[in-house]
Each structure stands twice: as structure tokens, then as C-alpha cells.
Design a protein around this nucleic acid. Structure first.
Lengths: 359, 359
DNA sequence: TTTAGCAGTCGGCACAGGAGAGTGCTAATC
DNA sequence: GATTAGCACTCTCCTGTGCCGACTGCTAAA
């Protein structure tokens, strides 16, 4: 299972708390996640065998509040975890939840279903994730550069537009329509396409650049513009990959969560889903880390998102990181379960995309 | 401009009201759409020059309520239009709103932008519609059958999967991955594909059926299954066209409307968007009518949708109805403006898809 | 037929008071 | 010195009351 990365406070890891504080903090977080109600000292001692009296718990909770791990909605209410409290819980206290076999099976079959298109496997992954977590799930389609070229089809649409379909060893990987200011000759296009297929089969896509394409198609010169676009498709340069598809779904689950009964939050999330930019950025950031990344409340960087948390995880095609998926839910989410689920979904994708001939 | 069709009460058109009742009903609807507040007799006589006193207006409103055109939220409140009231307004009283030139221009340019893919034009249409109406817009991609074959590309993915890209005179029209239980030979596929392109160019897609495909590819026999799937792609049979893409967006506009501050309604709509089935059915029904179709409140057939209205309109490719688009908003929507907008968007699509060589 | 006037109805809001939950503090206890 | 019982205190939430304002329906006069 993947390790979760501390994202917001990279240089200053949370200091360690003594055993009893740890135990109380953990119990408060656990209980609050389960019930959604502020947790009082009495409840805590009754439901969990802590071996101390409510008065002691009160003192410790007051201390934990001073140190910033707990919040108090108002004077006469119980305690609620703060962002820091959740952070400590996620970084140190969480223990991976074991998934039921039926869940594991569901994930596997669902993801393996439509496997001739890489896109569609990721789409399915996002769907199954949103259903299992009853939250919003999102994912970005895989980058191509480390995959192996199998077949390219250049289809002449009209003098200024060429449709491209790329098939890699893993299946149909990308399609796009490229516009060219210079006119494209259909016959030259066909011949160039044949040459490319003859010469490029088996190559890694990231070895293929505009210069190579130009050289191979010298006899049937195509517009440089077209070749550049083609090369760009193969070797995704940095962050400019706006063409990659983003899947998001599960907005109907929003209203199950009491924290989303607030219209400000609700609107913020719906706008997020509509514009997609931010989701995309979160996934992009996730690519930097090995395992799952958890971002809690204010760490998301928007006041309207203070009641939310996001969990993201990268997935691989072959041996290389190719994309990522994520879940957006209430800050009061079941982190243990969610981390297990998302890790398993990512693992399933990895397995599917691992060997070069899945079908 | 298109005529709106009475959808729910086809056989029994609303009876005509006398001049004064008509005027009062119209004013109530107009005022309520503008303000969102129940309309009282005093407000009405003050803001609109009706030539009668509040008392008379009260009597008429009471009558209109008896006849079912108005509702009263509670005894001491003003009146609100009922579904029947809106229906009368839409069918008889509405006068088309003239769009500003900047709006017309926006629609035109936005739709003409990505025009090498039919899908993408419809997608853009849906987007521009949701932005201009600040509501949810949705649309289904065009059916193909009346278009002209230009080019077909069959791409061998693996022994059991073939990727198909179809280009018609209007541009890239469809792509799909077809699964075949019987093995497909790559060389035969290529030769069959060449034959088809040589023989089918210029034909109407609906003239092409499985029998014709089988005959043309007799020399390079392909699995019957594959040919059937191919034929199905061309000649969309009735309602079985689950492969056609549906676009929907604008959920973030939901919260602008006070009627969507209700969680029941909100959830119902979010679920609608997620499952897509119902949206699809509405569009399907819209194809039966010439112009715009307006469905008001209970006419949508779901209790959770009582506060909503839907406007749909078909669009054409060539001279034949090929798809439809729609807007989902509050029952208290600006029907006049909305009908103008959606009609203009549909007209723009029609123009774009009219001639056989747009690019 | 229309209108002015008036009594009646109802929702919404502000306000007060009581119940309940949970705290912090202090003094006694281990 | 750490822990605990007891208690006064604080604050939210709920409920009930009373008032204000908006609009109606009815009746009698124009």
C-alpha cells in the first residue's frame, strides 16, 4: 500500500505527541469522523476505554487545543479536529483498512472491462472510485511518452485538417484533429503515414521528435507545423498538455455529506468541476510524489474549500508515471478507507498498464 | 424563429381567456419571472397601468385561481403562476425577444470555432448556451445516417479489436472501437478498408448496410459481427444509439436560482446529470417536433422536478434532423429570452451543418 | 360593474426563557 | 504531583409568544 505524503508542511513535520495525547487525539478524530458531532470528554470515556476520567481528558483536550490540534466550535461544545489534528492523524495514526474481497473484485473487473482504450480504463477507474467512496472522483488520461509505438493513422479530413489516431502496444491511446495552415496533400499524407508505420514500429514514443519525423517523411514532405504537432502528441512536454482528457463525476454524492449543505462550499465545488483547471493542477502536483497525497482543508488554498479534503495518487503506464487520479470529499472523510480504496484502484491501473500486450 | 410546441396537453389546447384576464395573467407571470416574489393586486396596479382598481384585479385573480392558472402559496400572500399559467403564457402570450448583436455574434463565432469535428461544434453549442442562459445546457451529438461518406479508416488494434474512424463530407464524424469474437486479420482489414473507400465515397451513409459491406469485402472476408457493428454505426436504428455522445454542463449556475436552494431539487438535478438517461430521453422526444419544445414543471414527470422547466430544440445536418439540444432551468425562467437564444443556437448549428463542404 | 373600505388571515421576525450538553476551575484524593 | 469528583458557568438550540406587515375576501356604496 502507498504511503501518504505530507504536502502542505513539507519542511516542518508535525512534532510527536506523548502517548496519552496521541491516544486522545486519535480517538477524537475517529469518533468525529464516525458521528460528525463535536466530541465531548464524557462521550469519549464512555465509548472508548481510555483508563482515565473525563476530567483528565478535558485537561488533555484543552492542551491539544492550545497546541492547535483541536478546535472548539463554541465554549460549551465538544472538540473537533483542526486541519493540524487531521494531518497528525493521517501522517502518524492511520492504519490501512483492509478492503473486502467483493470490493477488490469490483474494482478489478470494472477497470479491466474496456481495456482497448487507455482513456476508457481511466474513465472507469474514476467512476468506480466515485461510487465506492460516495464522493467526487477525477482522473487525467495517461501521458504517452514512455509507451511503445505500434501504429499511426493519419486521416485526411480536408486540405487543412488531419485526424490522427495513435495505437500503442497497450491499445488505442490518443486521437486528435490537427489543423495546418499550409495545405496537406492527401496522397503524400498516405505515403508518409505508411513510411512512418514501417519505420517507427516498436520505438518508444519519447524517442520520436519532429526532426526524426521530418527526416522519415522527407520524400513526402508534410507541413512542418503538422509534424511538430504530431511530435508534441508523443512527447508530452512538461505542463503544456492541455489536450489530455480529464474525467470527473459523482457530484450527486455531494449532498449526502452534511458539510456540503452550505451553499458557498457547494457552489465552489460545482465551479471547480466545471472549470477543471484546479482538478488538473492537483493531479499534476500528485505526479511529483510516489504514493498518495492527502491535502486537508486550508492546504487546498481556497477559503471555500476549508471543509474539504482531497486525496490524489499517480498511476503508471509501463514503468513510468503517466497520470493521476483523485477524490474530493469532506474534510471529515474516512481517510483510512479512502487511502486503501484509491491505492487499490491505482494498483489495478498499474497492473493493467504494466505489460506491453494486455489484450 | 421556431414555434414552441405544447407538449403535455397535446389533444386539449388551453381555452382562450377574455382580454382582461389575459392581460392580468400575463402581467402576473411577467412580474413574477422578474422578481420571484408572489404578486399582489396592489403591486400590479401600481407598476403596470391596467386601468382598473386593485379590487377588480383581486376578483379576476381569484377567478384565475379557480380556473387553475394561478396559485396562492398561502392565504395572505400574492399569486404565483401555476404550470397551467406558465403554459398559457408560453403558448399564447410570449413574444420573441430580440437578441443583441453581440450575443448573436458570440453564438456564431463560438460554434464555428471547432468545426472539423461535428461533436465539438455541438459541444461548443452546449457550452455557449449554458453560459448565456446561466442554466444547465445539454446536447446530443449528431446522428450520421443522412450524411455523405467520404472516408473510413479501420485500424487494427489487436486480433479482437478494431478502431474505426469515419469522416463524412462535413468532417470527422465518429470514432469507436469495435470488439470481435472472431479473429481479425490485419492485412485483410487493410485491403477491405481500401476497397470500401474506393467504392463507397460519395454515398449516403443510410444506403450502406451490412449486406452491402459484406458484398464489397467478399475478397477479404471480415467477421460478420464487425460488419454489422459498422453498418449500425452508419444507419442509426431507432433508439438503440447509446454510443452517441451527450454533453452537459453548467451545474455551477444552479445555485444562482433561488428555487434550487432546496436540497431535494438540487439532488434530483445532480443525479439527472450524472445518469444522463433522462436528458437523453428529453432530447429524443424533441426530435419529433419541428421547433422548440417547452416542458413546464409537472410535465417533466417527476415530483422533484416540479420547480423546473426544460426547453429543447432539434438541429439538422444537411436537410435532416440529426440531434437536439436543451436547457434545464427554473420553472420561473425567462421563457422569451430562452426561446430566442436556443433557437438562434440551433439555427447556427443548422447553418454550419447545411452545406456539405464547410471547411 | 366597479370600487373603497375594512376585518380577517397568515407568514416572518424578534425576543425571552428553559433544557441540555459540555466546559474550566477548585478542592479533595490517590 | 497527578488524577478525579463536584460545581458553577457558558453557550446553543428549541419552543412559545406577541407583534408587524402584506394581502386577501367580502360588503356596501358609487
Amino acid at each position: 500500500m502507498s504511503k501518504e505524503t505530507n504536502k502542505a508542511s513539507e519542511p516542518a513535520p508535525t512534532p510527536e505527541l506523548d502517548r496519552r495525547k496521541t491516544s486522545i487525539l486519535g480517538t477524537v478524530v475517529y469518533e468525529y469522523i464516525a458521528t460528525g458531532e463535536p466530541v465531548g470528554s464524557a462521550t469519549l470515556t464512555q465509548k472508548y476505554n481510555l483508563g482515565v476520567s473525563p476530567a483528565t481528558v478535558r485537561a488533555e483536550m484543552a492542551a491539544l487545543e492550545d497546541e492547535g490540534y483541536l478546535d472548539q466550535p463554541h465554549t460549551s461544545a465538544g472538540r473537533v479536529p483542526s486541519d493540524l489534528g487531521y494531518r497528525y492523524y493521517v501522517d502518524r495514526l492511520i492504519q490501512p483498512e483492509v478492503l473486502g474481497t467483493e470490493e477488490r473484485e469490483l474494482i478489478r473487473t470494472e477497470i479491466h472491462r474496456a481495456r482497448t482504450q487507455l482513456d476508457s480504463a481511466v474513465d472507469h477507474a474514476s467512476h468506480v472510485l466515485s461510487n465506492l467512496t460516495r464522493s467526487i472522483a477525477f482522473a487525467v488520461s495517461p501521458r504517452l511518452d514512455s509507451q511503445t509505438y505500434r501504429h499511426l493513422q493519419l486521416i485526411w479530413v480536408n486540405a487543412h485538417h488531419v485526424h490522427v489516431v495513435l495505437v500503442t502496444e497497450l491499445g488505442t491511446a490518443a486521437q486528435a484533429t490537427i489543423e495546418s495552415a499550409r495545405e496537406v496533400d492527401p496522397d503524400q499524407l498516405t505515403r508518409a503515414c505508411n513510411t512512418l508505420n514501417a519505420r517507427l514500429a516498436g520505438r518508444r514514443l519519447n524517442e520520436i521528435n519532429a526532426a526524426l519525423l521530418t527526416e522519415l517523411t522527407r520524400d513526402n514532405a508534410l507541413p512542418a507545423e503538422l509534424l511538430r504537432a504530431l511530435a508534441a502528441m508523443f512527447a508530452t512536454h512538461g505542463d503544456l498538455e492541455l489536450e489530455r482528457r480529464l474525467f470527473a463525476g459523482g457530484a450527486n454524492n455531494l449532498l449526502d455529506q452534511q458539510e456540503f449543505r452550505d451553499f458557498r462550499t457547494l457552489r465552489a465545488i460545482l465551479e471547480l468541476l466545471e472549470e477543471q483547471q484546479t482538478l488538473y493542477r492537483w493531479l499534476q502536483e500528485s505526479l511529483q510524489h510516489e504514493g498518495a497525497t492527502v491535502s486537508i482543508g486550508h492546504e487546498l488554498g481556497s477559503a471555500d474549500m476549508n471543509e474539504c479534503s482531497v486525496v490524489t495518487i499517480p498511476y503508471k503506464v509501463g514503468d513510468r508515471t503517466a497520470g493521476a487520479l483523485g477524490v474530493l470529499g469532506p474534510r471529515r472523510m474516512q481517510y483510512a478507507r479512502l487511502l486503501s480504496l484509491i491505492s487499490h484502484v491505482a494498483d489495478s491501473l498499474n497492473t493493467l498498464f504494466q505489460n506491453e500486450t494486455p489484450a
